[in-house]
Nucleic acid binder design. Structure first.
Lengths: 257, 257
DNA sequence: TGGCTTAGGTGGTCAGACCTTATCTGGGTT
DNA sequence: AACCCAGATAAGGTCTGACCACCTAAGCCA
């Protein structure tokens, strides 16, 4: 199954490297976490210069497919799929993304993920979610630690949804929001309420109640956005939303009727 | 507003270039379509080697932020935002994406975009949509041309939605599906029916009926997937969905209940 | 006028040397 | 024996400068 041209841009050598590595992955020669040969050696075996090889690796690294560690080696990415941790930030600079748009995208996608997780989640997911909820309650006094379990909770839902593409989108948005959260979580006062909402989400998913899971997730995210917004008052980036109340938006955006 | 480290990976020089260019964009010095200085000159002005500059540019190019044209120059990307035209393809190889997952993601996001477009779309969008619908009817006899207007129609909806992040996701998924469509559209027999469904979507958006727009879009995409699937019988990539009928899925996935 | 040639500018590739970082390893200290 | 630290080693990061490939447009000739 030869790989066709598929795109006219991007130089020849770069794509040669990219497609070669893609082939290795598709044929199971390389799996997540695996290390590729040293650059000098790999370049020699591909009959190209080290510089060209590096261009190709750089491309894959930018896409989040490979992970380069100075002094150690180059590896196939493991962990959850994403579109590159900085892609949203860069696109935002270029196209003028606004904070409310990020939250809106997150609301839409993550609610959907919760609903799918309720339908498709397996016992292992339920167990993992339960554990994270427990950890959240246990670390209410430690915002930094709480945040870790919060992120992990949402990540498990992404996995349980059974749709890695939507999960990847979520992971990318989440990464972009993470920095802001680190700053605000420290002064957060209502971690208990947050933990309880997560528990509700978990219960709905475990009960395989998609509608309830979606609703609980929406509610959680709306409150999270509000909390975030209050801490961030006066930030120029959080420009004004279209003239429409949040209430109206919620009704119209995420429910069909 | 100094740009913090924001990430520990990626080499120093590369990020220096990326952040420099990001700054130029944020300060309005560079706008979509603009050309950056020649590599040799630019590298000299940044006090780095041409090679390092190129790795930085390569990074931005992979992200879809910049467009490099051999023999011509390097430009800031214009057009609709996306996560890199090949990102999904690469992630798919790595994480084993399946075709039905792509369609599911598309269904979820594009239905939402249609609903948002119905709420927020302005007259200019309505006019543009009307024109594309007209063009579709006019080019029913020419599949290749029809597809162009089809793509454009969906792109306008993305714009009208007012959420460039969701639009970017849609653009990325659409790009990944485009190749397959090119093959199948040629033998397509029901372009008229397709055109009529687009007209329905347009009408719902114009009437600002979000629920109806969402519904029409869902219906359209489900049929499109079916048509695509029939033409692609026996393709190994279109692996089996979870055991659940399409009808059930639709009810549970996209409507809250 | 019109097509062909050619020169200049711009990105693409190459080669090899050298720098920086991370890890391993062995000896010396406590 | 346990610990610590300095080399040695291996891998990625950067630099230099030359040359190749592509595109455009100016200029030449028919």
């Amino acid at each position: 199954m030869p790989r066709k041209k598929q795109q006219e841009h991007e130089s020849d050598r770069t794509m040669q490297v990219v497609n070669h590595i893609r082939g290795l992955i598709e044929n199971g020669v390389l799996k997540p976490g695996d290390q590729i040969p040293p650059e000098r050696e790999f370049a020699r075996s591909l009959k190209i210069s080290r510089a060209s090889l590096r261009t190709g690796i750089g491309y894959l690294a930018a896409m989040g497919v490979m992970k380069v560690r100075h002094g150690v080696g180059t590896f196939v990415a493991d962990g959850p799929p994403d579109f590159g941790k900085t892609s949203l930030s860069l696109m935002g600079a270029l196209h003028g993304f606004q904070t409310w748009q990020m939250f809106e995208a997150r609301l839409v996608i993550e609610s959907q993920l919760a609903a799918l997780a309720a339908q498709r989640g397996r016992q292992e997911h339920h167990a993992a979610l339960a554990e994270e909820v427990a950890e959240m309650f246990a670390s209410i006094g430690s915002p930094a630690e709480y945040l870790i379990h919060d992120v992990q909770f949402h990540r498990i839902i992404s996995q349980a949804s059974g749709n890695p593409i939507l999960a990847a989108v979520m992971e990318t948005i989440g990464a972009s929001l993470y920095d802001d959260r680190l700053k605000t979580v420290e002064h957060s006062t209502d971690l208990r309420e947050s933990a309880e909402m997560h528990r509700e989400i978990y219960r709905a998913i475990r009960a395989r109640n998609a509608a309830e899971a979606r609703k609980a997730m929406e509610q959680h995210l709306r409150l999270a956005e509000e909390a975030q917004g209050l801490e961030r008052h006066g930030d120029k980036k959080s420009a004004v939303r279209p003239k429409r109340t949040r209430q109206e938006q919620g009704e119209l955006q995420t429910h069909a009727g």
